[in-house]
Design a protein around this nucleic acid. Structure first.
Length: 912
RNA sequence: GGACCCUUAGCUCAGUUGGUUAGAGCGUUUCCUUGACAUGGAAAAGGUCACUGGUUCGAGUCCAGUAGGGUCCA
């Protein structure tokens, strides 16, 4: 066996094992009858994506779950893939074209799409490559893409079906229009941002009474040419005489517009009079509809003013037009005032420009299975972690609006609708849509394509990704479903995602699953997943969201280079508490790396300490363990190993990943390395305890590697192999993780039973050791290894100390520890195992010692007073549970005993 | 305007159903290269648990309110 190197070098180890895992198809999922499945579908990253810290966290957690599932013996499937990301990808490719001073229209639809596909093939898998660097154990042979032929088939099938079932309709409605991408957006793709602008106070002159004005406040004077009315509240006394009159539009082509009454007007806002521009505002559009007002469109799809806005504004960009409109109004005297004003403006999520409400023909979806989707979460068939996100989910479903699913893009699933050639689409009624002579809707398209024209629009990207949990498993093709094991792997077990896409994705997947999977079967068979774990958002040290534009996002690949993939994984998981946003701090990644190095060196120490025995199984190791040679530390360590195993088990069930990481960190570093291994150094010298001590180390390291493997897969695989835990040619995941009761039952059959007294003895030994170290440090002797100590203690305490003397003497750097009946005038410390004295009487600084003892006495006095007060309270004594009462009494006894001892020491020093 | 979350050591955070003297990592101070590891070891300092009131024998934990911060939806 090669010797383990002095420090852990991740680079070669990671490369070697990942290649090895791939070569032996370790991550391939097999649908085996009788083996419980554990399924995760990856939230498909955009093909335009590069790995961010968010991806690192999200995918590390998924990898942790799936690797642990394999160790537990599940048929584990982690299904990877990417999303075609309509707007995002089209924008990226168009940006490239713009460098050549071209637009997609210079190429035409077909040629442009060829370019996008070329881009996708060249760059679209970068992020999946990066996930491999992180150690992601996806079943790569199953990699999916939302524009793969079979996936497209699923998407179009769903469209055709939902149309047939009456959920889809076409309507001319107000949509969120992105002038940059020139497409409609769903409400969810609009981000509200506070914007500092101006509120303009504009007056409209009454037609029948020149000189009489009505004032309106608006943030958008450029839309005045599109005004077709002024609305006031019917009960507003200020405007009682105005209703039914006409006023002159102060900008754009001259026009007289009516003053109307509508209860939707907020009397408190502005002047209480509202300009109505039905073509450019959602609320105005609704008021316009109620009053049969014309809608005059003055802004084009690209965000410029058109001729209807009048010659001065025509051709101007909407923002330039706003300034110009204000100047024109000022010049004509119609602008009464202008004041700074902060309001919320909707921005396009992708293009980051203000959206323009715009009246267009779009395809809409009435969500299916809304009530059932609520019930699935409310009744606990789907459990959210943390649970509170279910409120957000339910609230959204309560107020759900129809989904605009059409996009005026080229990159995406083209809507499978064909119109009869020559048909006036704008005149189509709902009935016409269902007339096969006029509109054809199918997967295959019409038999006589020459007579038809296909819809130009594509589907919203989310209208494909909402099928992800089953379209990736072969749906709707029965043969493909069988091959992929849909029956076995659906519903998936856990979805790991960010709360920011709870509406975009999570809620919609639930509805899609309920609508399309296993019709007629119980809800728990149709839901797409049983658990949803919501990660926090990763922020920088100042708490800001990480973003490209701020440049505050570290490059994960750079972090992998510097700290290793395992270091990065362990670091990011240990700082990611459940449900809270995460402040990224690089020093935590560094401590992840340090932890790996510690693990490495503990194994190195084991290897240097003696030949490896038979480590091939838990039972093989137990066979080497001799309970007759156990000392207190062996009992205590195995007890901690069991409780750690139990605790980690529980933490996995509760999705408390960072707590589990910290639990393992603490167990390994403190209990194993700092205490047990340090103690081993003396025991390994003694021939009679040596073999047993090594076997215990082998046992603990084995279990620790198994427990840690999901978090840090590379180093644990390497050490597993180095220490001979698996037969050659096998991997750590070929082993099974035993839980605490399995270990107990295995150990019992080798005659091992943990001794509770030994476990408390070790707690007291630890207290003794730290008291002695502190005593040395206080007297500037920390580094001396030749100090002699004297101990006064009862027989029981001395018995414990004596039995472990070689170990603890080495740990505190004592040349000698002797028992005495009485010691006077030496610096001392009261410990859980008697009083310990420094045998250096000559160098005692009596004054400092008095100060220290007085301080300790003062402290213990406070504690005693508090405990006594508690016990003196009759309400406490009569109402507290017996165990608590008993604990308090014992505590008081211990405190008093300690005070007696401290007082004795203090008196021995005399008055100062 | 509505909803949800947060406020604990210098920093970032734990603290499970209320129950000994509130913990960890980082940082700080002092000491240590003793044959796993200086990516390490030892010791120490550091907290009126945002504030006010309530429930309780007992509150960081439960309830109400106040202040500050954040997120989402209008």
């Amino acid at each position: 066996m090669p010797e383990i190197s002095k420090s852990y070098e991740p680079r070669d180890v990671e490369r070697k094992w990942y290649a090895s895992w791939l070569a032996s198809r370790q991550f391939a999922a097999h649908a085996e009858p009788g083996r419980e499945p554990y399924t995760i579908v990856i939230p498909p990253p955009n093909v335009t994506g590069v790995l961010t810290m968010g991806h690192v966290l999200n995918n590390t957690l998924q990898d942790i779950l799936i690797r642990r599932a394999r160790l537990e013996g599940h048929a584990a499937l982690w299904l990877p893939g990417t999303d075609h990301a309509g707007i995002a990808t089209q924008t990226v490719v168009e940006r490239e074209l713009r460098k050549q001073r071209k637009t997609r229209h210079d190429f035409g639809r077909e040629k442009f799409l060829e370019q996008v596909w070329a881009w996708r093939h060249e760059k679209g898998n970068i992020i999946l490559e990066q996930l491999r660097r992180l150690g992601a154990s996806c079943d790569w042979d199953r990699t999916q893409f939302t524009m793969d032929p079979h996936y497209s088939r699923a998407v179009l099938t769903v469209f055709v079906e939902l149309f047939r079932r009456g959920h889809i309709y076409r309507g001319k409605r107000m949509v969120n229009w992105c002038p940059a991408s020139q497409t409609a957006l769903s409400d969810e793709e609009v981000i509200m941002k506070p914007v500092n602008g101006f509120l303009y106070r504009v007056r409209y002159e009454r037609v029948d009474a020149p000189g009489l004005f009505l004032e309106v406040k608006t943030t958008r004077p450029e839309t005045i040419p599109g005004d077709t009315a002024i609305a006031v509240h019917p009960d507003d006394p200020r405007y009682a005489g105005w209703i039914g009159r006409k006023v002159r539009r102060p900008l754009g082509p001259p026009a007289e517009i009516p003053v109307i009454a509508d209860t939707a007007v907020d009397r408190e806002f502005g002047t209480g009079a509202l300009k109505i521009t039905p073509a450019h505002d959602k609320a105005d559009f609704e008021i316009g509809n109620r009053h049969h007002l014309p809608a005059i469109e003055v802004i084009t799809a690209t965000g410029q003013m058109n001729d209807l806005a009048g010659p001065e504004l025509a051709g101007k960009d909407r923002f330039a037009a706003r300034k110009l409109a204000a100047e024109l109004l000022r010049a004509s005297g119609a602008l009464v005032a202008e004041e700074p004003y902060a309001n919320n403006v909707g921005y396009s999520e992708r293009a980051d420009v203000p959206v323009e409400p715009r009246l267009t023909w779009q395809w809409w979806l009435r969500y299916p299975r809304v009530e059932e989707a609520k019930a699935a979460v409310r009744d606990g068939h789907i459990r959210f972690h943390p649970e509170r996100w279910s409120k957000v989910y339910l609230h959204w479903l309560e107020n759900i609006q129809d989904w605009c699913i059409s996009r005026q893009l080229w990159w995406g699933h083209r809507i499978p609708v064909w119109y009869r050639r020559g048909l006036d689409r704008d005149a189509l009624t709902e009935a016409d849509l269902r007339d096969p002579a006029k509109v054809h809707i199918s997967l295959e398209g019409p038999a006589d394509p020459a007579d038809w024209v296909q819809e130009e629009d594509v589907l919203d990207t989310w209208a494909s990704s909402w099928l992800w949990p089953f379209a990736t498993l072969g749906w709707p093709d029965p043969a493909a479903q069988r091959a992929a094991g849909l029956d076995h792997f659906y519903p998936t077990t856990t979805l790991v995602t960010g709360p920011d896409i709870i509406f975009f994705w999570v809620a919609r997947m639930i509805m899609a699953g309920l609508e399309f999977m296993r019709p007629g079967e119980p809800i728990e068979r149709r839901i797409p997943f049983r658990h949803v774990y919501f990660t926090g958002i990763i922020r920088d040290a100042q708490g800001r969201k990480m973003s490209k534009s701020l440049g505050n996002s570290p490059d994960p690949l750079d972090l992998i280079e510097r700290y290793g993939a395992d270091g990065l994984r362990f670091g990011i998981v240990s700082i990611a508490p459940q449900g809270q946003d995460i402040r990224f701090q690089e020093d935590r990644i560094e401590s992840g790396k340090n932890f790996c190095n510690k693990l490495w060196n503990a194994c190195r120490f084991r290897q240097m300490s003696g030949e490896t025995g038979d480590n091939s199984s838990l039972r093989a190791i137990f066979a080497r363990i001799d309970p007759a040679r156990f000392d207190a530390d062996d009992h205590a360590l195995l007890d901690r190993l069991l409780s750690t195993t139990r605790e980690v088990d529980r933490q996995f069930q509760q999705f408390e990943f960072s707590a589990a990481a910290q639990q393992l960190y603490g167990f390994f570093w403190n209990d194993f390395c700092d205490w047990y291994v340090e103690g081993s150094k003396a025991r390994l010298q003694a021939p009679d305890t040596r073999a047993n001590c090594l076997a215990i180390q082998d046992l603990v390291l084995r279990q620790t590697l198994l427990l840690l493997h999901p978090f840090i897969p590379f180093i644990t695989e390497e050490l597993w192999s180095q220490l001979g835990y698996g037969p050659a040619g096998t991997f750590i995941e070929d082993a099974r993780l035993e839980n605490a009761s399995q270990i107990v039952s295995a150990s019992g059959s080798y005659g091992l039973h943990l001794d509770a007294a030994a476990i408390t003895a070790v707690e007291r030994l630890k207290g003794w050791v730290s008291a002695v170290r502190a005593l040395k440090a206080e007297h500037q002797l920390a580094s001396r290894r030749d100090v002699r100590f004297l101990v006064t203690a009862g027989d029981a305490d001395w018995g414990i100390l004596e039995a472990n003397l070689a170990k603890v003497a080495r740990m505190v750097g004592a040349a000698e520890v002797q028992r005495r009946v009485q010691v006077d005038g030496a610096p001392a410390a009261v410990t859980p195992l008697g009083t310990v004295y420094l045998d250096l009487a000559s160098s005692v600084d009596a004054g400092a010692e008095r100060v220290r003892l007085d301080r300790e006495l003062e402290q213990i006095g406070r504690h005693i007073a508090a405990t006594e007060a508690r016990l003196a309270n009759t309400a406490f004594v009569s109402k507290a549970p017996p165990a608590v009462l008993e604990g308090a009494r014992r505590q008081l006894a211990e405190q008093q005993a300690k005070r007696v001892e401290l007082e004795r020491l203090r008196q021995a020093l005399g008055a100062g």
